[in-house]
Protein backbone atom coordinates (compact mmCIF):
# COMPACT_ATOMS: atom_id res chain seq x y z
CA UNK A 1 0.00 0.00 0.00
CA UNK A 2 1.26 3.46 -0.90
CA UNK A 3 1.94 5.66 2.14
CA UNK A 4 0.01 8.89 2.63
CA UNK A 5 1.59 11.93 4.27
CA UNK A 6 0.62 15.10 2.47
CA UNK A 7 -1.29 15.58 -0.73
CA UNK A 8 -1.71 18.73 -2.76
CA UNK A 9 -4.17 18.27 -5.54
CA UNK A 10 -7.00 19.38 -7.76
CA UNK A 11 -10.44 19.04 -6.16
CA UNK A 12 -13.40 17.54 -8.02
CA UNK A 13 -16.96 17.85 -6.70
CA UNK A 14 -19.81 15.41 -6.48
CA UNK A 15 -22.52 17.38 -4.75
CA UNK A 16 -24.82 14.54 -3.72
CA UNK A 17 -25.70 12.86 -0.44
CA UNK A 18 -25.91 9.12 0.26
CA UNK A 19 -23.75 8.14 -2.73
CA UNK A 20 -23.91 4.35 -2.53
CA UNK A 21 -21.31 1.85 -3.65
CA UNK A 22 -23.67 0.58 -6.36
CA UNK A 23 -23.22 4.02 -7.98
CA UNK A 24 -19.47 4.23 -7.32
CA UNK A 25 -19.08 0.96 -9.16
CA UNK A 26 -22.10 -0.82 -10.64
CA UNK A 27 -22.29 -4.59 -10.28
CA UNK A 28 -21.37 -5.43 -13.86
CA UNK A 29 -17.79 -4.43 -12.94
CA UNK A 30 -17.64 -6.75 -9.92
CA UNK A 31 -16.98 -9.85 -11.97
CA UNK A 32 -13.29 -9.06 -12.16
CA UNK A 33 -10.78 -11.12 -10.22
CA UNK A 34 -8.25 -8.25 -10.06
CA UNK A 35 -7.82 -5.13 -7.92
CA UNK A 36 -6.70 -2.89 -10.76
CA UNK A 37 -8.25 -1.57 -13.95
CA UNK A 38 -11.49 -0.66 -12.21
CA UNK A 39 -11.62 3.02 -13.21
CA UNK A 40 -13.59 1.95 -16.26
CA UNK A 41 -16.48 1.17 -13.92
CA UNK A 42 -16.20 4.27 -11.73
CA UNK A 43 -19.62 5.97 -11.62
CA UNK A 44 -20.35 4.21 -14.92
CA UNK A 45 -24.11 4.80 -14.71
CA UNK A 46 -23.75 8.47 -13.78
CA UNK A 47 -21.03 9.24 -16.28
CA UNK A 48 -23.28 8.17 -19.12
CA UNK A 49 -26.77 9.25 -20.07
CA UNK A 50 -29.42 6.60 -20.76
CA UNK A 51 -28.57 6.70 -24.50
CA UNK A 52 -24.95 5.81 -23.71
CA UNK A 53 -23.44 9.23 -24.46
CA UNK A 54 -21.28 11.00 -21.87
CA UNK A 55 -23.11 13.31 -19.46
CA UNK A 56 -21.26 16.63 -19.83
CA UNK A 57 -22.48 17.77 -16.41
CA UNK A 58 -20.88 14.89 -14.51
CA UNK A 59 -17.54 15.83 -12.92
CA UNK A 60 -15.58 13.08 -14.64
CA UNK A 61 -16.56 14.50 -18.03
CA UNK A 62 -15.63 18.11 -17.24
CA UNK A 63 -12.26 19.42 -18.45
CA UNK A 64 -11.73 21.47 -15.31
CA UNK A 65 -11.68 18.38 -13.10
CA UNK A 66 -9.29 16.25 -15.17
CA UNK A 67 -6.44 15.01 -13.02
CA UNK A 68 -8.29 15.52 -9.72
CA UNK A 69 -6.85 13.61 -6.78
CA UNK A 70 -9.33 14.88 -4.17
CA UNK A 71 -13.08 14.35 -4.27
CA UNK A 72 -15.39 16.65 -2.32
CA UNK A 73 -18.80 15.16 -1.67
CA UNK A 74 -21.90 14.92 0.54
CA UNK A 75 -23.08 13.08 3.64
CA UNK A 76 -22.92 9.30 4.05
CA UNK A 77 -20.66 8.71 1.05
CA UNK A 78 -20.06 5.00 0.28
CA UNK A 79 -23.20 3.59 1.88
CA UNK A 80 -24.51 0.18 0.90
CA UNK A 81 -22.47 -2.81 -0.13
CA UNK A 82 -19.06 -3.74 1.33
CA UNK A 83 -17.47 -4.05 -2.14
CA UNK A 84 -13.86 -2.89 -1.94
CA UNK A 85 -14.14 -2.43 -5.69
CA UNK A 86 -15.43 1.06 -4.79
CA UNK A 87 -12.17 2.37 -3.30
CA UNK A 88 -10.21 0.35 -5.89
CA UNK A 89 -12.06 2.17 -8.68
CA UNK A 90 -11.53 5.60 -7.08
CA UNK A 91 -7.84 4.86 -6.59
CA UNK A 92 -7.46 3.56 -10.13
CA UNK A 93 -8.95 6.83 -11.36
CA UNK A 94 -6.44 8.77 -9.27
CA UNK A 95 -8.42 9.83 -6.18
CA UNK A 96 -6.24 9.68 -3.04
CA UNK A 97 -8.45 11.58 -0.62
CA UNK A 98 -12.17 12.19 -0.08
CA UNK A 99 -13.73 15.05 1.84
CA UNK A 100 -17.28 14.76 3.20
CA UNK A 101 -19.30 15.47 6.36
CA UNK A 102 -19.66 11.70 6.90
CA UNK A 103 -18.86 8.32 5.35
CA UNK A 104 -20.47 4.90 5.66
CA UNK A 105 -18.55 2.61 8.03
CA UNK A 106 -17.44 -0.23 5.76
CA UNK A 107 -16.41 2.05 2.90
CA UNK A 108 -14.52 4.27 5.37
CA UNK A 109 -12.51 1.34 6.64
CA UNK A 110 -11.92 -0.02 3.11
CA UNK A 111 -10.32 3.30 2.12
CA UNK A 112 -7.58 2.94 4.74
CA UNK A 113 -6.74 -0.51 3.39
CA UNK A 114 -5.86 1.10 0.08
CA UNK A 115 -3.95 4.24 1.02
CA UNK A 116 -6.95 6.51 0.49
CA UNK A 117 -7.58 9.12 3.18
CA UNK A 118 -11.26 9.82 3.87
CA UNK A 119 -11.52 13.13 5.74
CA UNK A 120 -14.56 14.07 7.80
CA UNK A 121 -15.11 17.83 8.08
CA UNK A 122 -17.96 19.84 9.58
CA UNK A 123 -20.94 20.31 7.24
CA UNK A 124 -20.38 24.10 7.05
CA UNK A 125 -16.69 23.57 6.19
CA UNK A 126 -17.65 21.19 3.39
CA UNK A 127 -20.17 23.77 2.14
CA UNK A 128 -17.50 26.46 2.21
CA UNK A 129 -15.23 24.21 0.11
CA UNK A 130 -18.04 23.48 -2.37
CA UNK A 131 -18.53 27.22 -2.83
CA UNK A 132 -14.80 27.78 -3.26
CA UNK A 133 -14.40 25.02 -5.87
CA UNK A 134 -17.45 26.21 -7.81
CA UNK A 135 -16.10 29.77 -7.78
CA UNK A 136 -12.60 29.02 -8.96
CA UNK A 137 -11.47 26.68 -11.72
CA UNK A 138 -8.30 24.75 -10.86
CA UNK A 139 -9.03 24.93 -7.11
CA UNK A 140 -6.50 22.89 -5.17
CA UNK A 141 -6.26 21.85 -1.55
CA UNK A 142 -3.40 20.63 0.60
CA UNK A 143 -4.16 17.73 2.90
CA UNK A 144 -1.64 17.33 5.67
CA UNK A 145 -2.12 14.04 7.52
CA UNK A 146 0.63 14.42 10.17
CA UNK A 147 -0.88 17.72 11.38
CA UNK A 148 -4.47 16.58 10.56
CA UNK A 149 -5.29 19.69 8.56
CA UNK A 150 -6.92 20.56 5.24
CA UNK A 151 -5.34 23.80 3.99
CA UNK A 152 -6.96 26.10 1.45
CA UNK A 153 -5.11 28.42 -0.97
CA UNK A 154 -6.67 31.36 0.91
CA UNK A 155 -4.77 30.32 4.01
CA UNK A 156 -7.68 28.82 5.98
CA UNK A 157 -7.10 25.46 7.55
CA UNK A 158 -9.61 22.91 8.80
CA UNK A 159 -8.70 20.40 11.48
CA UNK A 160 -9.89 16.79 11.15
CA UNK A 161 -9.93 13.83 13.54
CA UNK A 162 -8.44 10.43 12.81
CA UNK A 163 -7.68 7.38 14.97
CA UNK A 164 -3.96 7.33 15.84
CA UNK A 165 -3.64 3.69 14.77
CA UNK A 166 -5.10 4.39 11.31
CA UNK A 167 -3.01 7.54 10.98
CA UNK A 168 0.24 5.71 11.66
CA UNK A 169 -0.75 2.92 9.28
CA UNK A 170 -1.33 5.39 6.44
CA UNK A 171 1.74 7.53 7.07
CA UNK A 172 4.03 4.52 7.16
CA UNK A 173 2.17 2.60 4.43
CA UNK A 174 2.24 -0.45 6.69
CA UNK A 175 1.00 -3.87 5.69
CA UNK A 176 -1.85 -4.50 8.14
CA UNK A 177 -1.56 -8.29 7.87
CA UNK A 178 2.15 -8.17 8.69
CA UNK A 179 1.38 -6.14 11.80
CA UNK A 180 -1.17 -8.68 12.99
CA UNK A 181 1.10 -11.61 12.21
CA UNK A 182 3.64 -10.07 14.57
CA UNK A 183 1.09 -10.56 17.34
CA UNK A 184 0.95 -14.31 16.74
CA UNK A 185 1.88 -15.23 20.36
CA UNK A 186 -1.10 -13.24 21.64
CA UNK A 187 -3.41 -14.86 19.08
CA UNK A 188 -2.19 -18.35 19.94
CA UNK A 189 -2.62 -17.70 23.68
CA UNK A 190 -6.13 -16.35 23.08
CA UNK A 191 -7.07 -19.42 21.08
CA UNK A 192 -5.70 -21.81 23.69
CA UNK A 193 -7.71 -20.12 26.45
CA UNK A 194 -10.92 -19.89 24.42
CA UNK A 195 -10.75 -23.54 23.35
CA UNK A 196 -11.14 -24.40 27.03
CA UNK A 197 -13.83 -21.79 27.75
CA UNK A 198 -16.00 -22.07 24.62
CA UNK A 199 -15.07 -25.33 22.89
CA UNK A 200 -18.19 -25.29 20.68
CA UNK A 201 -16.76 -22.31 18.80
CA UNK A 202 -13.77 -24.38 17.76
CA UNK A 203 -15.53 -27.29 16.09
CA UNK A 204 -14.21 -27.82 12.58
CA UNK A 205 -16.60 -26.95 9.78
Amino acid sequence: MEAFTTLTGLVAVLDRVNVDTDQIIPKQYLKTIHRTGLKEGLFADWRHRPDGSLDPLFFMNQTRYQGATILLTGDNFGCGSSREHAPWALLDYGIRSLLAPSFADIFFSNCFQNGILPVRLQAHEIQQLFDAVHAQEGYRLMIDLPSQKVKTPEGTSFHFDIDPFRKTGLIQGLDAIDLTLQREPAIAAYEARRKQEVPWLFQDL
Binding site: P87, I106, Q113, A176
Partner: peptide, 12 residues
Protein backbone atom coordinates in the same frame (compact mmCIF):
# COMPACT_ATOMS: atom_id res chain seq x y z
CA UNK B 1 -15.92 -6.45 5.64
CA UNK B 2 -13.98 -5.49 2.52
CA UNK B 3 -11.73 -7.80 0.53
CA UNK B 4 -8.50 -6.64 2.23
CA UNK B 5 -10.11 -7.59 5.53
CA UNK B 6 -11.20 -10.94 4.06
CA UNK B 7 -7.53 -11.59 3.34
CA UNK B 8 -6.62 -10.36 6.84
CA UNK B 9 -9.05 -12.78 8.50
CA UNK B 10 -7.94 -15.66 6.29
CA UNK B 11 -4.29 -15.05 7.21
CA UNK B 12 -4.69 -14.23 10.90
Amino acid sequence: IGTSEVEHVLAT
